[in-house]
Design a protein around this nucleic acid. Structure first.
Lengths: 234, 234
DNA sequence: ATGACCAGATTGGTTAACCAGTTATTCTCC
DNA sequence: GGAGAATAACTGGTTAACCAATCTGGTCAT
């Protein structure tokens, strides 16, 4: 059995993939009931001829997806899912490809259009203050002719926070940096559009402040128009 | 310095929070440039009076969000983000609350309505076969009067895969199990609605097969109507 | 002066021993 | 024979020593 250390398509080392699939097979072979206890890490390590650390990594991965739950000094338990569901999820996790840039941008736009609607509907006074402060920072930095990518990011994150949906906020946090760090590479963000972005931002702010979700979405869409074209017209 | 082991609001142990915030402070104090190398794990551990393992955990967390990047036998580097952006992101990560059930459901519906549109537009023959097989499984299991929560989940995951957007698929994978495992607790999924769900599913399948994104979205929305009411009418 | 090169220090990653709880077992006493 | 307590075995988590790749600084031949 080769266990190369090269990273796979979805960021999982192939050794980790192997272990995860073995755990899946074990769950199937033994007809595990939901909530049942997995064999101990040591036993699994011995059975699969890998180190215990590798087992722990694999378990941690599946724990991130909510499929397993480790209890200190007690054991690792499969979550309350049917075995067939567990199987399907693990299969998808194993074959999940690394998102390409277009997928990321597509997802980001889509997330933000919803987030800004929620923000317009649910924001508090403090949220509004933070958004406006972020926009002020972006404005001054941009007008000074300096690079304002960071301030732009913070503006959008402030809106995400104001959406009062922790789940959406987290998704936003997890996909944004990947996009930002690839921006230059893909030449998506033109510097000369930064000035006009100030006004676009302020239109969004105005719509949020006046609590008009639909308008906020439209204005955000305008702001994303360049990115949008990149996604759907190439 | 208290370092309780109790999990914080966002699933981060307070010790981890402390370390992450210290790392942030360090990056600020030393005016780190994008891409610069962080002090070694040993040095950080000594400086913060914690074990090296704790440092490694914190770094791993920030790596998940794409803010740091560990290079074997070389060092840990901050990603190519402005320091202000780094700061804002870390602050949000530290204060991110655990998503409540309503946030999760809200997000799931929203994701699926987009996913089904993409699936209708982009699915391949294999995708379609998998979706229809999943639906068949759901149908037979439900008609047999057995519990079909797992088959329902797999049906929706098959559609997510057919969206051909790895980013969306991953988001879907990461929020679904949390919802499923809380279903019973919140009594959202009534057993007696399962039969009618068969037809709703098949309407969705039909819309996907005939490549009508808008219709697919409508049909999916119908399918989620009960959940939707739970979200927005309580 | 310059470039190739080598040894030692430093790095993140890995391993194995250890720890504090939990759980199963056995032994005792009624 | 059965309930309760002591105990041994086992659990995931933690720690410290170890590893191999890498980086650094100086040295030496050119």
């Amino acid at each position: 059995m080769r266990t190369e250390d090269i990273k796979g398509m979805n960021g999982l080392a192939s050794k980790e993939k192997f272990i995860i699939s073995e755990i899946r097979d074990l769950i199937n072979a033994k007809n595990f009931e939901p909530g049942e206890k997995l064999p101990s890490e040591r036993l699994l390590a011995e059975k699969l001829n890998v180190t215990r650390g590798s087992i722990r990594n694999a378990i941690q991965k599946l724990e991130q997806y909510g499929l397993l739950k480790s209890m200190p000094q007690s054991g690792t338990f499969v979550s309350d899912l049917e075995r067939t569901a567990l199987n399907g999820m693990i299969d998808q996790i194993l074959t999940l490809p690394t998102p390409d840039f277009k997928s990321l941008v597509e997802t980001r736009i889509f997330l933000e259009l919803k987030i800004v609607k929620f923000a317009a509907a649910r924001h508090t006074e403090e949220d509004m203050a933070e958004i406006e402060q972020a926009q002020l920072n972006y404005r001054t930095k941009t007008l000074a002719g300096e690079d304002s990518v960071a301030e732009d990011l913070l503006f959008h994150l402030a809106i995400a926070k104001a959406s009062h949906n922790a789940s959406l906020q987290r998704l936003m946090l997890s996909i944004t940096p990947q996009i930002i760090t690839n921006f230059e590479k893909y030449h998506v963000c033109k510097n000369n559009t930064a000035i006009s972005a100030i006004e676009e931002h302020e239109e969004v702010v105005k719509a949020i402040r006046t609590k008009r979700p639909e308008l906020a979405e439209v204005k955000m869409k305008d702001h994303f128009s360049v990115l949008y074209q990149y996604c759907y017209e190439t």
